[in-house]
Structures are given as structure tokens and as C-alpha cells.
Design a binder for these strands. Structure first.
Lengths: 340, 340
DNA sequence: CTGTTAGCGCATTCAG
DNA sequence: CTGAATGCGCTAACAG
């Protein structure tokens, strides 16, 4: 092999002294005599023949590619999803391509549109913000799509989502069991899917356990990042005296940890801290971070399977799945937590 | 718009009462009368026309896509690269697709082969392990490729690499200035590009500053991960009494931080710790981590620009660039380090 | 300025 | 079992 010239079926056919049809058959596992097959394979090898993806796609309508669209490749929760999805789709014979869209719904809409050009056989998308325009673009798309995240109920798309409310409930329950009463929330932007869910969940959980929700105990960071959590926690400490802080994700919670240390508060003695998503960052943190596992790996896995099913059976009924949360208790809420 | 049927140029042409060529021209910015253009755009809109990527690619030979291949999407250093590269390629009119290959060179070889099918116009690749097979596949590829990382000198490929040796020298110099003398290395696998470079760099730096290199002060983790660093540091502490530890990347260094805390050593008082890559993880760590910035963002940027240049001018001379390292000093080496 | 036409490389009828 | 011929949707000559 390793001729460096670009090759094609016709060249291979000529070299093997057979027709292009036969070459195509041999190379795609069709029936052919052993002798002919051998000649074809040798010729293909000698010419370094590689089939052209676009030609095959044009002919078959398939790309054997699945796109995963996430807002931020740096967010550990998406990293978990990427890792999970890669394996599932590979096993089903698809290649995964990851597309980092940024947080702006407009970019996601552009992506959906461009995917309709036939870059992929299906799309997994986890939107940070769900706007009517995005829903419209998603619904109008001819491409099989599975949405990871909460969608308006009337949207007829497969989707699998987390249960933030129950998850925050788990955190609040745990904190109350530790004797905490002033449980603050360091949230991300409330115009995002997770942001709004977590705010509502926090209020509901406090109410359910008979604690008064107060505006003082809720601060909103400018993003779901470490730095934003750092700054938001500083604001929180300036206006209230919490004995526990829930970060809307692990990065925000780590930011809170840092600010608490800088402010001279001990964790967990003075203030307990809980994160959400249970990513690697929770384990890396010092002290290690108790975190609500919202099942990102499970969600990704379920979503990938749904997508493959939908690609193979476009008329399958729409499925909506909810993944149950779980709590991973670590040092940031209990003094003598088990070592990871 | 938003007809849901799949459309094509012929349909649009028929609806607008013009030829397919005119439709193609209008939609691609060719010259046409305003009146005709308007009719075409209306028809395209009404039919929800979207051009087919594979057909266009087959015709033009271009995909307008660039692939970035990394071994592990979860590694912060690759995250930095992805972020940087996304912007550069977008500005040049390309879409970025990220491919997570895993650490096995075999998977990378498969990727290179599959890209020869025409999935992308160019490839940015940062291999963890460089085997002769991989070099062969890279060299034999017809696709424009830029390698991020060290390559054997005879390979005729554009590449931009870090200078680990100088970087470690910076770290050692800094530690010596802090009065440290038993400077250990928690390395990753030595059969990787960064692993071998860092080992050599460590030895060279110790020698240069007149310190004896000893096997006791070198441990090799099973991977470039937090957990591996944790375990390797435990082994290190069992066999030696270092007063400083250099992690071959930030994740390993954070693992060292954790193990030191568990072993009751104070950082930096008893043991100073330095990471490499200067990723977000260094800032998040407690105490925050002094880290050698090997210029991953700069490398990614330079590589992306080189690739775009090579795509546009396949005959341009081969370029090899080296990015100079820098040291970010934080709390893990100096008691009163500046707050981030 | 606009239309006709010829392939790009491939998988797939349909004949033989 | 094998070969000839067709067309997927598009762009770029080439004519008019």
C-alpha cells in the first residue's frame, strides 16, 4: 500500500481488471468469487485506496457520524458526557464528533441548521438556554435529535433530563440532618435551564423542610464557573451568615470553598458546602466536596441509546426519561467523611 | 419557510422558474439580477432549502471542517487547546470538530486513515505517544496536518511543541531559590511524549544546579490523572523524604497535594509542590498550585494558524515552532503568594 | 446575465 | 457471479 496518489474505484477496477461494481461489492462485503476478491483487495492495497466519504454519503444518505453539541467543553459535566457517549456510539458503528457551541442559543441554532446539510446522522444536544427559537429550530429539523435537559412539555422530541429539584432536596435534607438551618444557594444565571431549575428546587426544598427562604441566602453568579462562584460567594458572605452553601454546580461550589477559606471560615465546621454534578472537581477539591450526582453519565448514556434507536427507527414513539439523583457525601459537609 | 420536506436545487429552480445554475449562483453570491435573486431566495425560503454538504464537498473537494484530535477530552490542557482553536478556525471560515481518540496510538492511526476519506480539510493532532506507526500514518496522509508535540527531527510535518526541559528548569530554579534541595518528580508514563521529556528535563535541571539525581526521588504514575498522582505520591513518600515535588502535569500535582495533606505534611512549609501546564486546576487547588505554563494556549493558536496556512498553500515550507515556558507562582511554593 | 451540461465517486439496479 | 449503466446534489465550464 501507501501509494501517495489519490485513488478511486475506477482506478482500482482498472488495476484489478474488473468492473467498478465488483470492486464496490468486494470492499463492502458483497458476494464475489474468492479469486476476484483477492485481486481486488491487492489492487486496492497497492493503490492505497480509501473510499470517499462524501460520495458514499451522497449515495447512501448516511454519514455514520453522530454529533454531540455542548455549550462548554471545559465544563466537567460535559466532559463526563463526552466520555460516556463516545463509547456507546462507537459500539453502534458511529463516529462521534463533538461540537462546542458556546452558551449563546443562536450558535446552537446555527449548528442545528448546519447539521441539516447532512454532516451527521443524529444530534445529541444539551442546551444551556432553551429559547423559543431554539425549540423551533430543533423541532423543524429533519435530523434525529435527542435533547439532554429539560424541554417544554409540548415539544415532541426525545429527551432525558435530570431532576434538579429532587437533587437539591437531597442536599437540603442532608444538611438539615447535620444541623444546618441557614442554607444558601450560589446559583448560576437564572435564565439558563439548570439555573432556573436549581433556584426553584432550592426554594421548594426549604419550604418543604419548614425553613424560610430568604433573598439574602440566594446569590446569582455570572456563570457556572469557578471564578464566578468565588465572587458570588463574597457577595453572599457580605449580606448573610449562612451555615451551609449549595453551589449550583461543582465549579461554583469550589469557588465558594476558596472564598470561605479566604474569609477565614472553616469547612465544614462553620459552613458546610455541597456541589452539584458530582464531577472530578468534587473529588479534587480540598476539602473534598459533597455533591449531588445528577446522573450526567447516565443521562448521556440513555440519550445516546435513544438517539441510535431513533436513527434506526424514525417513527418510534417519543420518549422522555428522567434520571434520579443521588448524593455523594464527602468532607465538605461531614468532619469525618470517608476518604475517597 | 419551514416546509419539512427535503429539498434540492432542482426543486428550488422549478419553483422560481429559473435554472439550477442561477439558483446556485444566487445562493453562493454570484452575480445575478436583483429580480431573479429575489425570486430564488423566496423559493428557497418557502421550500426550506438547505444545501447538501456531501454533494458540495464531492464537487468542490472542500469540507470547510478542521478536526482537532486529542487523547482525552477531560484533560484540562486539551480543554485549553480546544477553546483556543475554536476561535481561530471559526474566524477563518472553518468549523471545528473535536475527536477524542484515547491514548492508544492505534486509535489515532485509525483516525488519520479515516480522515483521508475526506471528512475534514485538515487535522490538528496532539499525540500522547508517538510510535513509528503513527509517524508513518501521519506522513503518508494526504491531508494537511499540524502536530502539537515533539516529533522525530526527520519528520517533514509542521509542528509546534513545548519546551518541557526549560520549563522544568524554571520550576527547579524557583524551588532552589526557596531553599529546596530534595526535589522529587511525580511523572506520568515515560513511554509518552510528555513523560519522557519531563523525566529528561528533571535530571538535566538537577544536574545543572548541582543536585544529585536519585531514583528514589522519581516515581512514575500510571497515567496523567489525579488518582494516579495520589497513589504515586504515596509511593514516593514511602521511599524518600522530598522537600519539593514537581508533578508532570497539574492533575498529578493536585494528587500529590492531596496525599501530602493526608500524610500530614504542610504545603508549602514542609513540601513545596509545582504542577505543569498551568491549567484551571492549578488555580482551583488548595493551596493554589504554582505551575509551569508550557504555553498550551499559544501552542494551539500557533498550530491552528499553521494548519490554515498549509491548507491554503500546500507547498509552503515545513515549519517547526517551539513555545517558551513561563512560571506561574502561587501558594504551593511560597507561603505568602499573591492571591489569584 | 442566464441556461445547459458534464461530471465529482460511489452503491445499486438491471442484464447477462 | 459479474459488468454496464444510472443518478444522488451540486458547482463550474461553456454557450448563448
Amino acid at each position: 500500500m501507501a501509494e501517495t496518489k489519490k485513488s478511486n474505484l475506477a482506478l482500482v477496477a482498472a488495476r484489478a481488471g474488473v468492473s467498478v461494481a465488483s470492486v464496490s461489492r468486494v470492499l463492502n462485503g458483497g458476494s464475489a468469487s474468492e479469486q476476484l476478491a483477492k485481486r481486488v483487495r491487492e489492487a486496492a492495497d497497492e493503490l492505497g485506496y480509501v473510499p470517499d466519504a462524501s460520495a458514499r454519503t451522497m449515495r447512501t444518505g448516511r454519514t455514520d457520524q453522530i454529533t454531540l453539541a455542548v455549550a462548554d467543553v471545559g465544563n466537567p459535566v460535559y466532559v463526563q458526557m463526552m466520555r460516556t457517549v463516545t463509547g456507546i456510539v462507537a459500539k453502534a458503528g458511529y463516529r462521534l464528533v463533538v461540537s462546542s457551541t458556546g452558551a449563546d442559543p443562536k450558535d446552537q441554532i446555527d449548528l442545528v441548521r448546519s447539521l441539516n446539510r447532512g454532516y451527521a446522522d443524529g444530534l445529541l444536544i444539551s442546551p444551556l438556554r432553551i429559547t423559543p427559537d431554539l425549540v423551533e429550530a430543533l423541532s423543524a429539523s429533519r435530523l434525529p435529535i435527542v435533547v439532554i435537559g429539560t424541554l417544554p412539555p409540548e415539544v415532541e422530541l426525545d429527551n432525558v433530563r435530570a431532576d434538579s429539584a429532587t437533587g437539591i432536596g437531597l442536599a437540603v435534607e442532608h444538611l438539615i440532618a447535620q444541623g444546618r438551618r441557614r442554607i444558601a444557594l450560589v446559583n448560576g444565571p437564572v435564565d439558563t435551564v439548570p439555573g432556573s431549575a436549581r433556584l426553584a428546587g432550592h426554594r421548594a426544598a426549604l419550604e418543604r423542610f419548614g425553613l424560610a427562604a430568604s433573598d439574602e441566602l440566594e446569590v446569582t453568579a455570572t456563570g457556572f464557573t469557578y471564578r464566578a462562584g468565588h465572587r458570588a460567594t463574597a457577595r453572599l458572605l457580605a449580606q448573610a451568615e449562612p451555615d451551609a452553601i449549595i453551589g449550583a454546580n461543582d465549579l461554583l461550589a469550589v469557588g465558594a470553598l476558596k472564598e470561605l477559606a479566604a474569609a477565614g471560615r472553616r469547612v465544614p465546621e462553620d459552613v458546610a458546602v455541597v456541589g452539584m454534578d458530582d464531577t472530578d472537581a468534587a473529588e479534587l477539591a480540598t476539602p473534598s466536596l459533597t455533591s449531588v450526582d445528577l446522573g450526567s453519565a447516565k443521562r448521556a448514556k440513555a440519550a445516546a441509546k435513544l438517539l441510535i434507536r431513533r436513527i434506526e427507527d424514525p417513527d418510534a414513539p417519543v420518549v422522555r426519561q428522567v434520571i434520579a439523583p443521588a448524593l455523594s457525601v464527602r468532607e465538605s459537609t461531614v468532619p469525618e467523611a470517608p476518604r475517597a
